[in-house]
């Protein structure tokens, strides 16, 4: 069975401001999709809508054919959609291992820590933070906390992963681990939506880009095409974003994976 995430005409208003103006897209199987757009484009709101934290005013979200937009976030997580947060949200006063036990036990895959200890240790070793297993979450550095969040997602083992700014403030050596993590998940046939301002990573990793601007989906396609799209260039340049810094212009045509 292929993994599918379909969003159909998602609209959301906050007060008088239309944050999402009827978004539709479909993501399938082992796809790695980049979701980009200037600040305030609606990326985080879209994530919250997909995750169930915010109910859309209208529109339908389906995961593997099951309608998930009316569900609570925990039900969405159990249905197979996992996310990270823009600001790291490690459980600060729980040990690293306990952080990983939470999804395992919430999903009912383990009745006690003993059942999921081996899996948790395997994941911590993969993420190279196994030596910190008994430390509190708050004792970890910002980058290590990001890794811990990714580790929790591996335990959750959803079908679709949404990563909100996984590279922000991460040390280059840990960056390699995140790349490795993405390859592992993608290799399992899972879909990943990657939200990032670091264009280099986006262009290296993603096979498809969704570009949001003021709640509209202004482009959807392979990165090499998207970055020459006049609407996209306008969206970025029109808001004084430094294109050379983001790598939008300087990247070579054939750079995507």
């Amino acid at each position: 069975m292929t993994i599918t995430l379909e969003a159909n005409d998602i609209r959301k208003k906050f007060g008088g401001l239309q944050v999402l103006k009827g978004l539709s897209f479909r993501i399938e199987g082992p796809e790695l999709v980049g979701l980009i757009g200037p600040n305030g484009a609606g990326k985080t709101t879209l994530t919250n809508v997909l995750d169930g934290a915010i109910k859309p005013d209208s529109g339908i979200v389906r995961l593997n054919g099951q309608r998930i937009d009316p569900l609570a976030p925990y039900e969405v997580a159990r249905a197979g959609l996992g996310r990270t947060f823009q600001v790291t949200r490690a459980f600060r006063r729980m040990s690293v291992l306990e952080n990983l036990y939470v999804p395992a036990m919430a999903m009912g895959r383990a009745r006690s820590p003993r059942d999921c200890h081996d899996q948790a240790m395997e994941i911590l070793e993969f993420l190279t933070i196994d030596h910190l297993r008994n430390e509190y979450g708050r004792a970890l550095s910002g980058g290590q906390q990001k890794l811990l969040e990714l580790g929790r997602l591996l335990v959750l083992n959803p079908d679709v992963y949404i990563l909100d700014e996984p590279f922000a403030g991460v040390h280059p050596t840990l960056m390699a681990t995140i790349y490795k993590w993405i390859q592992r998940v993608n290799g399992q046939g899972k879909a990943i939506i990657l939200i990032s301002h670091q264009m280099e990573s986006i262009f290296t990793l993603c096979s498809r880009l969704l570009v949001l601007n003021y709640g509209d989906l202004i482009a959807d396609g392979v990165p090499s095409v998207v970055k020459n799209d006049p609407a996209v260039i306008e969206a970025y340049l029109g808001h004084d974003e430094d294109m050379s810094g983001t790598g939008m212009v300087s990247l070579k045509e054939d750079s995507h994976a």
Partner: peptide, 9 residues
């Protein structure tokens, strides 16, 4: 209001 796609705030 929801069904008619109006502001539901």
């Amino acid at each position: 209001y929801f069904m008619r796609d109006l502001d539901v705030t």
